[in-house]
């Protein structure tokens, strides 16, 4: 039946298709309507970006094009190391977010409707708290004299405070906390969309709960999981506040390095190179993200 109706549709659309596309006029009136906004966007957003890219390849004084800055960047130990470290930390954060976020989303779908709303509201509410306030709050919680250490000490589990802060651990905790909703919310929606019939039929075919989860449910959530993970990864790359505050100056990431280059040493050309590199990485990942989304939705 589906085949037949498709065939009929095709037959009708066939001859008419060719002239229709040729007949599509360019909508000048629409262009005019959005022209002001396009102009503002171009001037405020695109031109500065292009300008930054220009700085990356031009000599500061003469304006001539040069690859000197890129060379300096690639040859330097420090800059490349920061890039790698940022990629690595972002990967860590993404993994931790997945390990925490997937079970959280799954558990939420199993709750009664009212509890579900409460949990979702709690997750969304974190967006309302300023990221700066949240990051500093971690100091109160994780510091040597903070809640966690004091509780551990009181419970007798530790004798010395555990160093949660001013190192990579603190940064990962802080960043995961901020990025968790970006994973949990889409996953929650995707999990709800899984056809319950598939799970039921798998059960009648004899599958255990574990098998149903790993072979039927989980694979169906993987596209959303992958897309959201890439989003979390991209966002981690650009983090500034959390590494600055919770890293104690010992775990500089790309954004912190840019801070040094721009605000302290005024090496704008190198900062421009780093910007271009970061943008290239991000755009590539974003393209992958879009492909994944389109493919599975």
């Amino acid at each position: 039946m589906i085949d037949a109706s498709l065939a009929i549709d095709g037959a009708v659309a066939g001859p008419a298709a060719a002239p229709a596309s040729a007949r599509r006029r360019f909508r000048w009136d629409l262009l005019l309507l959005i022209a002001p906004l396009l102009l503002v966007t171009a001037v405020v957003f695109d031109v500065p970006l292009l300008n930054t890219a220009y700085w990356a390849v031009s000599d500061a004084k003469s304006g001539a094009l040069t690859t000197r800055h890129f060379q300096e960047f690639l040859e330097s130990n420090a800059y490349m190391r920061i890039i790698w470290r940022t990629l690595f930390v972002s990967l860590e954060v993404t993994l931790v977010t997945i390990l925490l976020g997937y079970p959280l989303a799954y558990w939420t779908t199993k709750l009664r409707p009212r509890l579900r709303m409460i949990v979702l509201a709690l997750v969304v509410m974190t967006f309302w708290v300023s990221i700066l306030v949240r990051t500093y709050a971690w100091i109160v919680i994780l510091g040597n004299a903070g809640l966690v250490n004091r509780s551990l000490h009181w419970l007798g589990i530790t004798s010395k405070p555990v160093e949660f802060l001013y190192n990579e651990l603190g940064i990962v905790i802080g960043m995961t906390n901020v990025l968790l909703p970006f994973l949990v919310l889409p996953l929650y929606a995707a999990m709800l969309r899984v056809d319950q019939r598939l799970l039921q039929v798998a059960e009648t075919l004899g599958a255990s709960r574990l098998r149903i989860f790993w072979q039927v449910f989980f694979p169906l959530t993987v596209p959303t999981l992958a897309a959201s993970s890439i989003l979390v990864f991209i966002l981690s790359l650009g983090f500034y506040i959390t590494p600055a505050v919770l890293g104690g100056g010992k775990v500089p990431l790309i954004a912190n390095m840019m801070d040094l280059l721009i605000n302290r040493f005024a090496r704008w050309e190198i900062a421009a190179v780093v910007s271009v590199v970061l943008m290239a990485i991000t755009l590539t990942l974003y393209a992958v993200y879009q492909r994944l989304r389109e493919k599975y939705q």
Partner: peptide
């Protein structure tokens, strides 16, 4: 008895084939 242990074959109206 749980469905998995009943040894029955079920065909849903929507077929419920595993799409992946």
């Amino acid at each position: 008895v749980p469905a998995a242990q009943r040894n029955i074959g079920l065909v849903f109206q929507s077929y419920a084939l595993f799409p992946h």
